[in-house]
Nucleic acid binder design. Structure first.
Lengths: 366, 366
DNA sequence: CTGAAAGCGCTAACAT
DNA sequence: ATGTTAGCGCTTTCAG
């Protein structure tokens, strides 16, 4: 009655602490199922059944195994498990964000992580920094780790670098839609949000508007611009009377641009900022010029303390928790075999009035 | 000359696309080293050598293998690799934070992730929400995934739940020191930072101070309080003249507390807030009471737009990037076998003057 | 209800 | 320089 080459008596008496093979590290190697089986005096498969909550084990045996596992502080090795298991899932997904330090994406991460954690799934997170080369490298790194799925904010112009059979790998794009690949996407309703901002400013009586934005090469920026200009059209405002200042890559460049805009000819009476850093730059410029209560401002993207500004900043708020939650649901569905046609899920934006967007235009006289 | 039971000719001609065993998923299973070996007409070990950049392969063979790998879009399976490889490392670490949505911890995450990524290591991140039960559960989940190390912000009163041989698992605590476990820690110099704040307010002539804080049961809060009171002692200010309001668990409770404080008897002329949400509450209360330019404020913890407030908020800034970087270096060192005595690494704080801390006390007359 | 044997994809150790 | 074999810790398959 030998068990894996060791009698039961031996199993109880002789504990051979395998020395860790780690360089410079002395210590006892972590126990394996064999060790638990030996201690519980059962076969290894019975341990496997107990650990995995499979049926077909008597309660007595179960308890014996659980006690042995506890005594040895046994922890299943999921890597080994997933190597053999049907489906071969690793119960992990890869998350690629512009930066985990960015509050907007941090909130997405949080919501997504919570949903996935409740399904026993782990999240591997990495920051891209709008670096297309990194995007490709990190996707490959995640593939080597055999993640069950990928959730990413694409920065590369195209996701054509993905292996042809990428359809095998569940993927959900967030914030931006993919290019050159067909996959689910979860995005804000950028066009409608920007349109709401335009409509709001127009409803306050403004006609001399300015549209300020950052990068123009990303989809979200184009959608916001389209929503804004479409609304101008609906309101019968000629785009010629609107200042479009784009390509503002930093808070500082936005600040300078606004200073020039407002001290130049035909200054606008209301500003829409399509990007959060641009919004910060606009706020600075208005404050410096003492125009914060004289020029209206609506910003795309909410932020902490927006209501503490003078005046409070009216924004088009995105809902990162919502985006994260939907992305989590989609990736889970795909992992579980959902084969429906890839689809883009649109999360609505919300116009939040706080004062800056309700600054009226100056009286028409003179 | 058979290769894994298949002749070379067959290897080239017959491609047997194993069907994915995934439920409802049709598709070709990802290629293994065997497949690459067959295509390149070499042994599997040669493929292993090439893929892992091991020496002892002729350039010609190398190229043959690389081409085959590329053609099949081969990606190494790191899980299988780590199962057999010496050292058995998974090249991943677990990161446990209060919340990945918290900007302070997001910045730590970012810095840590960058350093680790440059060493080919992945980061599994999870949010704890100050839930001790979650801490333990998530640590175990990470252990099952065989992370090479753990970086965590402890919330449990003690880390005694860790397996006895936890010394085998490299661990670095951040923001707070561990209890009941001996491990490296990387923390802000909370005491010195709070002392700087106190010294600054006192140097501005304030003697009627208030100390507001959140939870009192965490180490960082106690250290800040100690630093603050120690400085009072050095300056010869009796703690009896100082209001200590602690246990303010939210921005709102801080706001209310400050309103009562300032409308009550013996109002302070300067406030130190030991926690960022408390700082926000204080700012709100001061603004509501119209006292933002009349009562001095120094807050512990920097935040976006702090300089845009009226007045700018003087803060004791922590350096999350620095904390993250040091934590990454420590966990890497430990993983690589560093056996030195566990140590606490203290990252200095910086007092940043922006106006609110430089509000002078009211003139003594009356 | 239980367990022995085979094998997941890979690398270590040892051939050749 | 290259290949063969065993085995990492686990689950599958199949036999009791």
């Amino acid at each position: 009655m030998s068990q894996t080459g060791r009698t039961m008596a031996e199993a109880n008496d002789i504990i051979e602490p395998r020395v860790s093979s780690h360089p410079d590290v002395v210590g006892v190697a972590r126990p394996r199922m064999r060790d638990v089986a030996a201690l519980a005096e059962v076969g290894i498969k019975t341990v496997s059944r107990v650990i995995n909550d499979e049926p077909g084990v008597s309660e007595v045996t179960r308890q014996k195994v659980l006690q042995a596992a506890q005594r040895l502080n046994y922890q299943l090795d999921m890597a080994a498990q997933s190597l053999r298991r049907a489906g071969r899932q690793t119960l992990s997904i890869g998350l690629l964000l512009p930066s985990v330090a960015n509050p907007f994406h941090g909130q997405i991460h949080r919501a997504l992580g919570d949903v996935l954690a409740s399904h026993g799934m782990a999240v591997l997170a990495a920051s891209l920094d709008d670096d297309a080369a990194r995007e490709e490298a990190l996707v490959k790194a995640f593939l080597r780790r055999r993640v069950d799925g990928l959730v990413l904010t694409p920065v590369a112009k195209s996701q054509g670098y993905l292996p042809e059979h990428s359809s095998d790998l569940p993927m959900v794009f967030i914030d931006r839609e993919p290019v050159g690949t067909d996959a689910d996407a979860v995005v804000s309703d950028n066009a409608a949000g920007a349109a709401k901002a335009a409509a709001h400013l127009i409803s306050q009586g403004h006609t001399k508007l300015a549209y300020l934005a950052g990068r123009t090469d990303i989809q979200t920026a184009r959608q916001r611009r389209r929503g804004f200009t479409d609304e101008l059209g609906r309101a019968g405002i000629s785009p010629d009377t609107v200042h479009f200042l784009e390509g503002l890559r930093s808070e500082e460049s936005a600040r300078k641009a606004v200073r020039e805009l407002l001290t130049g000819a035909e200054p606008p009476t209301a500003i829409f900022s399509a990007q959060i850093l641009v919004t910060f730059g606009v706020m600075r410029a208005l404050q410096e010029l003492g125009l914060n209560r004289a020029v209206a401002l609506v910003g795309f993207g909410d932020f902490t303390l927006s209501d503490m500004m003078d005046p409070g900043i009216t924004v088009v708020a995105q809902h990162p928790e919502h985006i994260g939650r939907v992305a989590a649901e989609r990736i889970l569905a795909r992992i579980n075999g959902d084969q429906q046609e890839p689809q883009t899920y649109i999360v609505p934006c919300e116009l939040i009035l706080r004062g800056s967007g309700e600054v009226p235009p100056p009286p028409p006289n003179r």
